[in-house]
């Protein structure tokens, strides 16, 4: 792959690929690619949201009865944590734009930290449910779950295994996205440490940022639908 065919000016940074003419073209392509990828993410999650709305439509009492078993506090904490991480991620992008590598690293660490807190809270939520027989689908243990509901002054109605099936699917897929996000942010940390990012080249930071914000966006809708709505 020789660069003799490149018609643009001399490559301005080390990450310019030979088949692009300008860094702007490369950055623009990467960013558009990311937005299109985000579109596919939104559509993928939309399937789960639609399933939720349909189930809610079929069994309104069951959904309202079952969601009382989820902890609003834990969900609320996670919402705040995730919003904060979105903020620190945006700050990391800004630091890259102005070429402040220590600030990029600091903000990436904060974001990863928030993501880890999110997953830890999630872990306690899941195990807390499993401990009372609340499993998805056919593994749902009605007797233990009903007992647990009684302790908290609620009543199980109808077919709660469907609600928890959807709950585990939605939060599970979202959790997988958080884990992937942690992975790519660790990759960014390594690259940032080598001083790869600056005003001329910060596409990876920006794109990971976009990805992280969409993970946040999904949670913004998940939280009220699963935990809060009456």
């Amino acid at each position: 792959m020789s660069s003799a065919h490149g018609q643009g000016p001399k490559a301005p940074h080390a990450f310019m690929q030979h088949h692009y003419n300008t860094p702007e073209q490369q950055a623009g392509a990467a960013k558009l690619g990311m937005w299109v990828f985000l579109a596919t993410e939104v559509l993928m999650f939309s399937g789960l949201f639609l399933a939720y709305f349909i189930v809610r439509m079929f069994y309104p009492d069951m959904v309202l009865g079952s969601h009382e078993l989820l902890s609003k506090t834990m969900g609320g904490i996670n919402t705040v944590v995730l919003l904060t991480s979105s903020f620190t991620m945006a700050m990391a992008v800004r630091a890259a734009q102005v070429g402040n590598t220590p600030a990029i690293l600091r903000n990436l660490y904060l974001t990863i930290g928030c993501a880890l807190i999110f997953m830890v809270v999630k872990y306690f939520e899941y195990t807390g449910k499993f401990a009372h027989g609340i499993f998805p689908g056919k593994y749902f243990d009605y007797a233990r779950a009903a007992e647990y509901a009684h302790e908290h002054g609620h009543e199980l109605v109808g077919l709660p295994h469907i609600f928890f099936g959807i709950y585990f699917c939605m939060t599970g897929l979202h959790g997988v996205h958080v884990l992937v996000g942690i992975g790519v942010m660790v990759w960014l940390v390594f690259r940032a440490k080598r001083g790869h990012f600056g005003p001329q080249y910060f596409t990876p930071v920006e794109n990971v940022g976009l990805y992280w914000h969409i993970v946040d966006l999904v949670w913004i809708f998940l939280f009220p639908l699963l935990y809060l709505v009456k």
Binding site: Q7, G8, P9, K10, P12, N21, T22, P23, E24, Q25, G28, R94, Q97, V98, P199, Q200
Partner: peptide, 23 residues
């Protein structure tokens, strides 16, 4: 270095500059 560079089919002056908005 008089070769024009193009972006979106339009010639641009300084290809290396960052045109991003910094809030």
């Amino acid at each position: 270095m008089t070769i024009k560079t193009f972006f979106h089919g339009k010639p641009i002056e300084d290809a290396i500059e960052c045109h991003e908005h910094v809030s």
